[in-house]
Design a protein around this nucleic acid. Sequence first.
DNA 1: GGCCATGATTTCCT
DNA 2: AGGAAATCATGGCC
Length: 365
Amino acid sequence: MMDEQPRLMHSHGVGMAGHPGLAQHMQDGTAGTDGEGRKQDIGDILQQIMTITDQSLDEAQARKHALNCHRMKPALFNVLCEIKEKTVLSIRGAQEEEPQDPQLMRLDNMLLAEGVAGPEKGGGSAAAAAAAAAAGGIGADNSAEHSDYRAKLSQIRQIYHTELEKYEQLDIVPTGGGYGQRQNFKKNACNEFTTHVMNLLREQSRTRPISPKEIERMVSIIHRKFSSIQMQLKQSTCEAVMILRSRFLDARRKRRNFNKQATEILNEYFYSHLSNPYPSEEAKEELAKKCSITVSQVSNWFGNKRIRYKKNIGKFQEEANMYAARTAVSATSVSAQGSQANSPSTPNSAGGYPSPCYQPDRRIQ
DNA sequence: GGCCATGATTTCCT
DNA sequence: AGGAAATCATGGCC
């Protein structure tokens, strides 16, 4: 962006010797006598301008000063103004407002949904939990992996915010003659750079014509540039979140056996409800609580258990008998429990495995 | 390293 | 929406 200026100088500057306006200016001075000398002067000046960037800083400074004091400077300045006026029109055309980028909105929405953008911690992690739950259907209450996920997410969040702040642009409008509220600017890369460029342009405006409008334009160019940096930041943050998320999902896929106690509780329920091993939502919740696992894990377990039991009843016979005996014992100790039509006492009985009570009702054919 | 048990996921069905 | 069945992927044992 910054190289636009020199380029502008270049393309117009080279042709300048032949510029009609320049010729006119050249004749404005003393009658044609030393026209040759002036041409020479102009050539010198242009040459000097063109090569000023090759100089060391001090040299360039000195040369700038010299040029400023050159007798042809006002003329040159006028020419520059003229050229400016002509080109500015074409520049205007290219300056239409770009519509709010839908891509950017998408990124913003996603970051918001993931709890990276938006309000502080509380809302953030809640959103994260919601997102995770939505992604996996797992209760939000779960365990080490989940908190690990949240920790990583908040790390991303923090980095995102510190980075974002650097490139954030508070609306700095160069008011009137000055850009006075400098002390109010948040100190960040964008604003510092903007201020720097504005100062530079102001200073340059002594040598070449720069309207406030142009400074504004430059500022908006810079802002656009910084916006695109922000966009990149948002994009890579999104990517990071996605990666984290998929890792989290993978981690969840890693199976860990339930502890013995949980398995016993589940088996106990299963075999004592063999006739209808479909715990209600409430029963699932209770089991989940007792086993300190989630409701969907309970559902998974019963799903797996039913199908595997059905597939190979023989294999589970021993297990069935064991739990049946157990519940039988507890049932007798409570005595007055026979009320239920078909659960606790019946399952085991005499060796018959399809467990008399496991009626193939429901969907099990 | 193969093998089975087992929790999780996917697909299809009702 | 919830379940059956198939499938995936890992834990853990030999």
